[in-house]
Design a protein around this nucleic acid. Structure first.
Lengths: 335, 335
DNA sequence: CTGAAAGCGCTTACAG
DNA sequence: CTGAAAGCGCTTACAG
């Protein structure tokens, strides 16, 4: 029922001009202390808040940033969003969320819409389809419209913009070496994302740690049935002593196959997964995993974007940031 | 580099007035077909898109809706957001996301901010703390400011606004009866959310299905250690034949305790959980659960809000909607 | 059929 | 120290 009060109405009530009210509320030195006080008092009384839409129009800003998320059901991305929201609030920015569902077309629609000025900048983790088809025109388009873009998490592509993600290659290399250091020789890897940038890097990390081709045991497929078959072969025929998983699907597949084949984790098989703390800790046995610090990725992504928006970043050089992952030991790698 | 072209610039290029351009682009009958075509052609050429901020200011709308989410890491809420985003896109609305982290204070800050007109309406699942303290002034405040509010999921409270959620009571009553029909007598329930509205309803459903006090086996605590102890008692001492879980934490606790105590699911213990499909299906054994259709809740929440915003809902009567849950049978209730 | 004017709610350079 | 004026980019009732 309360109608929002405007500057104009406030001015009328006070018998001063709109300009005076506006200046008073902004603590302008031009205004006498007396007037300033009167204005502020009445403003507070009426709970005056400037209409953000008007302020934005005046300042040619939208006061919002857009976030494109490929898959919100993935806790990793949900936690990135958590970090983004927290940091954006601090900067007084609203976060408009878009979900691409891993579809190129949807991503293009969103990017197209964003060129009309809904947001001051965009954070994006590109969709799987976009990566596969290497179709980046819609992103270039955003850049052309002078809308700052920051890529997060899925950063293994050639776009001249700021990027923040984890060191995927190193994270799995480190995990593999840890297993080797414990005397494990036969180490396999299961992946359902070998066709994606992050997947490739993680597999490369695994390969780096192993000396030669003969040591590789790789089960890779984006199709569940095929992944199941290949992983089963690794576990049952090749009898790997440990297995690394590059993603949620392959991790769960390994657990499922171990269960079905009565392979006891960690006695018969050590497992290192790539998933979120909530799931990893609650599984039985709990599963050692690579912590990616999604919230921090979100926070730093906003920082990069804000700097770009406010033009605080020197020059035009894109910045590349990497967050260090951490191997968390839980029951699945007990020795 | 491309600077966004404005109506004014378009008008100058065409040697007509701004009004004419605007009308032409809106297919006004006032404009001659010739002019209309000229205008549209140039607009397309320059990829003209009206500045949404200006349009909003003119129409006293923001073109956005706010969504307050208590906990985005919870896949349930993530999927609600998925439904919200999809439906909002269809209605041409932008979704601004806020995360309360289950904190009253944060929720109040958000509500306070929203009164200044960032959004045309708000979807909110109130935080745990808000529910506990029954502190709803900030929500009343939104309503006072004529900002439509729709409550989703956590709807067991006395606020005269539209609501959408699931029938929590019936869902667990049905689950309990299903177990009874299979000849199971000793049925327990584990819950970490008995202090919340949804938790209470779910427990009531369980009680409804059982005849008398003697049949109740309840492990309830919001503290992990205490919940663990109580649940352990149910499983090991009371030796319940089946256990219902009202939430993610209690579900995982049951799995963990079964694992530790070498209780085999489903041979020794049937389990019905309350969690998301992704997790339920991937566990070993997979866990029967109550499907809550979060996406649909999100979609319908937007529908309710849009109707309210456009004043299409007859009268002022708040609408209460309920989505039917569905019991999904997986391995943990194999007979 | 076209355009000048007013106005959405602000901010700010400028005049007094 | 205060206010009138211009303007952010649009829409629309009104005049011609």
């Amino acid at each position: 029922m309360k109608n929002k009060i405007t500057l104009k109405e406030l001015a009328k009530l006070l018998n001063v001009s709109v300009s005076t009210v506006s200046k008073a509320l902004h603590d302008s030195a031009e205004i006498s202390p007396k007037t300033a006080e009167r204005v502020k008092e009445l403003a507070k009384l009426h709970n005056y808040r400037p209409n953000p839409v008007a302020v934005n129009l005046k300042s040619s800003k939208s006061g919002t940033i857009g976030v494109i998320i490929p898959n919100i059901s993935n806790t990793f991305f949900a936690n990135v969003l958590l970090g983004i929201e927290a940091r954006a609030q601090k900067s007084g920015l609203q976060v408009i969320t878009y979900i691409s569902n891993e579809k190129l077309e949807r991503e293009q629609q969103i990017a197209e819409m964003l060129t009309s000025g809904f947001v001051d900048g965009v954070l994006i983790a590109i969709s799987e389809e976009t990566q596969r088809k290497k179709e980046y025109d819609h992103l270039f388009n955003l850049v052309d419209y002078d809308i700052p873009v920051v890529l997060y998490d899925r950063i293994n592509l050639d776009l001249q913009v700021d990027k923040i993600g984890i060191d995927d290659e190193y994270s799995l290399e480190e995990a593999t070496r840890m297993l080797q250091a414990r005397g494990i020789k036969k180490i396999g890897i299961a992946t359902s994302i070998h066709h994606l940038g992050v997947g490739k890097l993680r597999i490369t990390g695994y390969r780096n740690a192993l000396k030669n081709e003969n040591d590789f045991y790789i089960a890779n497929s984006s199709k569940p049935d095929s992944l199941r078959e290949k992983t089963q072969k690794l576990l049952v025929e090749d009898k790997v002593e440990a297995i690394l998983c590059t993603d949620f699907v392959s991790t769960m597949m390994v657990y499922r196959l171990a269960y079905e084949n009565k392979i006891i984790i960690p006695k018969d098989l050590k497992v290192i997964g790539f998933l979120n703390a909530d799931v990893a800790r609650f599984l039985t046995p709990s599963i050692s995993y690579v912590e990616q610090f999604p919230e921090e990725i979100g926070e730093q992504a906003v920082d990069l974007l804000v700097n770009r928006i406010e033009n605080r970043i020197g020059g035009k050089q894109p910045i590349n940031k990497t967050i260090n992952t951490k191997l968390i030991h839980l029951e699945s790698t007990d020795f």
